[in-house]
Computed example of a mutant assay.
Amino acid sequence: MTLPALFVPHGGGPCFFMDPAGGPPDPMWQPMQAYLAGLIAALPERPKAILLVSGHWEAPEVTVHVGDGQPLFYDYYGFPEHTYRLQWPAPGAPDVARRAAALLQDAGFATREEAERGWDHGVFIPMMVAVPGADIPLAQMSLRADLDPEAHIAIGRALAPLRDEGVLIVGSGMSFHNLRARGPQVTPVADAWDAALTAAVTDPDPARRAARVAAWEDLPHARFAHPEAEHLLPLMVALGAGGEGAAVCDYRDHVLGWTVSGYRFG
């Protein structure tokens, strides 16, 4: 059975786990938490592994992590002390990482391997919600540091065969990510950006969809929504991996005054 490819929001820092007693997050984050908590149950079958591309890892060449992701990489700052002791001890998936690298090499992309970097919070924060039992192996893959949209869509296309091999491809980022703009005054602009982005992402024609999303900077308020592009590029990988299948927006909500969406391909 073919699994979809997903682009999911990973929240802000350890936003779902701010209560040291393990209580629920701030109500603002609860709809996103509920969406992430339902990801695996919404799939046609439970994946044998996850290949995840996070907006928090860039490398000169696409790099696959062939270790176990431990210890975790707590790459957020100024949060309560207990959030630097969070754990998500899932096994690594070096076989999936190397299979991904081979597919990319066959498509003409230079790749590298590394085994020491811990999984960053773009991995373990959403996965603590989506896979709380930490019982699905995971391989992380970097973005390419040039953040070229067309190249990342092509990277996703090269990875698409993994979907038929029981691997869930996940892009983890944020559809809106401007840390300097927060509050209700941002929402009208964020809504306009999100509507334009979602119209492009869900274009029923796959070729036109890819072209429109690759030209994301032409959409209204694009550089306001993303002063830097790293949190949007995982979307390109998921879109490319989704192939000719349908694309839907399966999550939309407001946090911090931002309009934030998640997408499912195939």
Rank of each mutant, 00 (worst) to 15 (best):
L3W: 04
A5G: 08
F7K: 07
F7M: 09
P9H: 05
H10P: 03
P14W: 06
M18Q: 07
A21L: 15
P25R: 12
P25C: 13
D26E: 14
M28N: 15
L36P: 05
P47W: 00
K48Y: 04
L51F: 03
S54Q: 07
G55Y: 00
E61P: 08
T63C: 09
V66Y: 07
L72C: 05
E81I: 10
T83S: 06
L86M: 14
P91K: 14
G92R: 02
P94S: 09
R99Q: 12
R112W: 01
R112L: 13
E113V: 13
A115Q: 10
R117M: 10
W119M: 08
D120M: 00
M127L: 15
A130C: 12
V131I: 14
P132K: 14
G133K: 08
I136A: 04
M141I: 12
A145H: 15
L147F: 04
D148R: 11
P149V: 05
P149W: 02
A151C: 13
A151W: 08
H152Y: 05
A160K: 06
L162F: 00
E165T: 12
E165Q: 14
G166K: 04
G166L: 05
V167Q: 08
S172E: 03
S175Q: 00
S175H: 02
N178V: 06
N178I: 03
R180W: 11
P188C: 00
V189P: 03
A190T: 05
D194S: 14
A199P: 14
A200K: 02
P204F: 10
A210F: 02
A211D: 15
E217N: 14
H221V: 02
A222C: 06
R223V: 11
A225Y: 03
E230Y: 04
H231N: 09
V237P: 03
V237Y: 02
A238T: 02
A238M: 04
L239F: 11
L239V: 10
G240S: 11
G242A: 02
G245K: 09
V248H: 12
R252F: 07
R252N: 11
R264L: 05
